[in-house]
Design a protein around this nucleic acid. Structure first.
Length: 479
RNA sequence: GUCCCGUUCGUCUAGUGGUCAGGACGCUAGCCUCUCACGCUGGAAACACGGGUUCGACUCCCGUACGGGACGCCA
């Protein structure tokens, strides 16, 4: 590529979402790839909001996208650029193309275009705009009719995209028609705006979804006619839903924030997302620091990947276990405002369950796949007496079990040190004396103290619940 | 329809002409164990199909099938 930007220039990449909704998972991965590449190469990661379509612009969407990026830990350099605010500069470029003879005024109306399109379809011909105004004498142009400005794209030859992911992709120029660069209302269109902005922002590498590949060909033509060097391209494959179809809002294409609400950790999201299409040998669990060291666009493959929530969950479990206890508890507390029932939990935390939850974190992180599991698994902490028993617990606490608890309770009275170890010793002694296996005692205790048959280690539960609450719950269950 | 791209266990992937085709998630049999997890040890599970090229193809070439993307005065 003779006119490419020098490869030793400092890397500048960008993420350029259009503000039509939240940051979806595919966009999040594109942003992650860009961010990682910038970090890996010591470059800059810029943000540009592609808001040239005023009808689909929304400040809420911009806020949601920035919030999603922030949550994922993808920080950007400088202020986000508004494409719309650069419209004058885009028009300037269009004027230059016009005066250089590389673009022309096209007076074709929407109706005429629709008719041409229909005619092409009727003949089963691929539709290509072939404007009669491309080569007409300027003197024949109407003086007052509205016009759009079209690029005078080459009709022969081919446009080659040398792509770091897709390889060399060749488009015949006859398949690429004269695209509109300035609408009849004077506003710039996407492809022109992207080229001008990427050029002005000094973007060296364009990393984006492969759905932009044909745009790359069109943009390459604009670059060429403007006399500018093209950036390095990397068109990454799309993410599909579990059924192999395009990821849509119906299945899986949730906003990044939805994953926050499901209790996923940003570090796990980054780890999971990057492995969708990128790999480093057999490595699966990769810290962000390691990603920054290893990431490169050359190792991205071309095939699309399906989104698999199970693997995300497994990775999340790993990163939960790898997190510090205080850090996890902190994440949990900060998650509450984003949860539907978070208010109630926050109140319970404030009323005393908070410190108990914190004390249980080491035990619970071994058995939690998401932050939500912490809450689900610790509800017994703030449950009111007498406890409601679930079906299995009810069955477990039969008459014999209740008798046993009645016999066991006195062993806990007047313990000098109410903590897990002495409690366990007491229970073990009791089990031995009664000639029972430990489980035969522990399970009824669990049912009586938590109302369920599944919980963190029961002696930790007793310790955290405290002497008074533990004895009260046990007496509730005893006969 | 036209153009472009893809196809290794169910899923994510390693692989770059000679491997018992490896790992991870999931599934599964055990071990550990106060439950559930974690951890550990095993197991089942894949090169879409057909032609070439080659002493030899998962690896290279062509075709077929299937899948995806793009075909706006949207981005």
């Amino acid at each position: 590529m003779s006119n490419a930007a020098p490869s030793n220039a400092p890397v500048v990449v960008r993420f350029a979402p259009s503000p039509t909704g939240y940051l979806h998972i595919g966009g999040a991965r594109t942003a992650l790839f860009n961010w990682l590449y910038a970090k890996a190469k010591g470059g800059r990661f810029l943000l540009r909001i592609e808001d040239t379509d005023r009808e689909r612009n929304s400040p809420e969407a911009v806020a949601a996208i920035l919030d999603g990026l922030t949550w994922l830990g993808l920080d950007w350099d400088g202020e986000p650029v508004s494409q719309y605010e650069r419209a004058d500069r885009h028009r300037e470029a269009a004027e230059k193309l016009l005066t250089d003879g590389n673009a022309y005024r096209c007076y074709l109306t929407q109706e005429q275009l629709a008719a041409l399109r229909e005619a092409a379809e009727a003949d089963k011909r691929p539709f290509r705009v072939d404007s009669p105004w491309r080569d007409c004498d300027p003197a024949d142009a109407p003086s007052d009719a509205p016009f759009a400005i079209r690029l005078r794209a080459p009709k022969d030859g081919e446009t080659v995209i040398r792509d770091h992911v897709q390889g060399e992709v060749t488009f015949a120029n006859k398949d690429l028609d004269d695209l509109i660069i300035l609408r009849s209302d004077g506003s710039p269109t996407y492809n022109l705006a992207v080229v001008v902005d990427d050029h002005d922002m000094g973007i060296t590498h364009v990393i984006r979804g492969v759905d932009h590949l044909t745009n790359a060909a069109r943009q390459a033509q604009i670059y060429s006619l403007l006399g500018w060097p093209v950036p390095e391209w990397a068109h990454v494959p799309l993410i599909h839903g579990p059924d192999g179809a395009k990821l849509s809002k119906r299945h899986g294409a949730l906003g990044a924030q939805a994953y926050r609400e499901m209790g996923y950790l940003p570090v796990a999201m980054r780890n999971y997302l990057v492995r969708l299409g990128w790999s480093h040998g057999d490595d699966e669990i990769i810290s962000t620091e390691q990603l920054i060291e290893w990431f490169d666009i050359e190792a991205i493959n071309k095939a699309p990947a399906r989104f698999d929530i199970h693997k995300l969950e497994a990775l999340n479990g790993h990163w939960i276990r790898a997190s510090g206890d205080d850090e996890l508890f902190d994440s949990l507390v900060h998650l509450l405002p984003h949860l539907a029932d978070g208010d109630a939990v926050a109140k319970a935390f404030a009323a005393g369950a908070g410190p108990k939850m914190r004390a249980l974190v080491p035990a619970m992180k071994e058995r939690s796949k998401t932050l939500l599991d912490f809450i689900d698994g610790a509800k017994f902490l703030w449950a009111k007496r007498p406890l409601e028993l679930d079906e299995k617990a009810e069955k477990l606490l039969d008459d014999a079990a209740r008798d046993m608890i009645a016999k066991l309770v006195p062993n806990f009275e007047h313990l000098p040190n109410w903590s897990a170890e002495p409690l366990e010793a007491k229970v073990r002694d009791f089990a031995e004396a009664q000639n029972l296996k430990l489980g035969k005692v522990a399970q009824p205790l669990r049912a009586a103290l938590t109302g369920t048959t599944v919980s963190p280690p029961i002696f930790d539960v007793m310790a955290v619940l405290g002497e008074e609450e533990t004895l009260n719950r046990l007496r509730d269950a005893a006969r």
